[in-house]
Design a protein around this nucleic acid. Structure first.
Lengths: 229, 229
DNA sequence: TGACTATGACTGACCAGTCAGTCATAAATG
DNA sequence: CATTTATGACTGACTGGTCAGTCATAGTCA
């Protein structure tokens, strides 16, 4: 364009270096479709990073593009606009989570063990990770993106609540859980975990929180003092 | 502005009507200081409304000014810039809350009653009110405004946690609370309340949550099944 | 297989709109 | 009338979105 139409000299390999970065260009990228998919996921990754760090409104598409090693225009080949990019991004990142939720192990062992394993896993995979930040992001932007909040509720929250409820009812049936009303509010079961997520991102440096240990105490509250040990 | 530059005719009284609203202009406003204070609080009120609705970055100062019934320039007579306005705003709104926290009633009656009264009050005054939205706002913008997060932690969270801990220890001493480790994590006590705040602003229309009732169940968990009734 | 063409993914300069912050002017005050 | 306070038009910087042009790759043909 205006720049230097004479740059026709640009050889094959030089191109990647010409831009700021060479992303995951290790593989020569077989066909177009593959490359496109790679681009897209690079954009998603970069966008998540930026949105988490700055929030929706304050994030610049230029920054996303630079971080993804892509020109700004490329973003618009994959997403309609900033808004729908945000929405699709959340969907994309959430999907694997949903998959995991659906693959709940069959109820074996004590309910307490089940819940402990499940929640322990949750903490490990969410607290202090990108995923945890995503949760905060959804809390932050949800009210301005009803479709995101809806999606998140439908795909994650309602399923999670249902699963928890089933577990609680099992625990009640087996006599492990005394408080029958708990089945009405499975939220109580996960509340400390949610708090831990938020706490970490806001107050960790003032007063770090041992989420794992807090969870143990909370479960003692529900199941009674620690069973064996 | 763009409207009609010829409105130079605007007489004294007409001014208030000229803009969208006439705030608390009933009183002729005695001295300057009073008027200034009124202006300031009108700005704070309007700003809170806008920030809650749109978040920091997406909020326009023009909108705040219009809502406050004030010219944009006036804002800059009270605040250095948008950022420090946000910070001061949070401080201003939080202060009364701190005052209430400090005025905790002396420990009389059962601890359960105390906690129930306290938490009930909390729910009534926070859930579904502007204050609840403010909490969400702090969660949302906190990471980008460390000074706000710090302030909130210092003035509200740490005090609240300390108060809760004292209450829990009292409950343990009196034998009302069995789980001794709870004193290590007062967060557990308030977790459901926090969850309720967030739930209301995100998922209320999908599945309204009876926060009051949920809280009761949670307290049953901590204090054992309902004592008298 | 090697040369030649068609395709469309990709680029980035550009534009139009937006908004935080300023300041010359006007109004109110005492 | 001098001083303090308020106004809102204006500016300059910034950013979401566009599009004419480029070029590596896939496809075609001899």
């Amino acid at each position: 364009m205006t720049k230097e139409p004479t740059k026709a000299a640009t050889p094959t390999a030089a191109r990647a270096d010409a831009k700021g970065r060479a992303p995951a260009d290790a593989a020569p990228a077989s066909n177009r479709a593959t490359r496109a998919a790679e681009r897209r996921s690079a954009i998603v990754e970069a966008a998540m990073e930026e949105f988490i760090a700055r929030g929706f409104a304050a994030t610049r598409l230029d920054d996303i593009a630079r971080r993804a090693g892509v020109a700004k225009g490329t973003i618009y080949l994959h997403f309609k606009d900033k808004e729908s990019m945000f929405e699709e991004l959340v969907r994309t990142v959430i999907v694997p989570v949903v998959a995991k939720l659906n693959a709940l192990p069959p109820p074996t062992g004590s309910v307490r063990d089940l819940v402990e394993a499940f929640a322990g896993n949750f903490l490990r995979e969410v607290i202090g990770t990108r995923r945890g930040d995503l949760v905060r992001l959804i809390v932050a932007e949800g009210p301005r993106f009803p479709s995101v909040a809806d999606f998140y509720y439908r795909e994650v929250v309602s399923r999670g609540i249902a699963g928890m409820r089933a577990l609680i009812e099992l625990g009640i049936a087996r006599g492990e859980i005394r408080e029958k009303n708990l089945a009405r509010y499975p939220q109580i079961l996960v509340a400390p975990a949610m708090i831990a997520v938020i706490w970490q991102s806001l107050f960790a440096r003032h007063a770090p929180l041992d989420a794992q240990d807090m969870l143990r105490v909370h479960l003692d509250l529900i199941f009674g003092e620690r069973r064996t040990t």
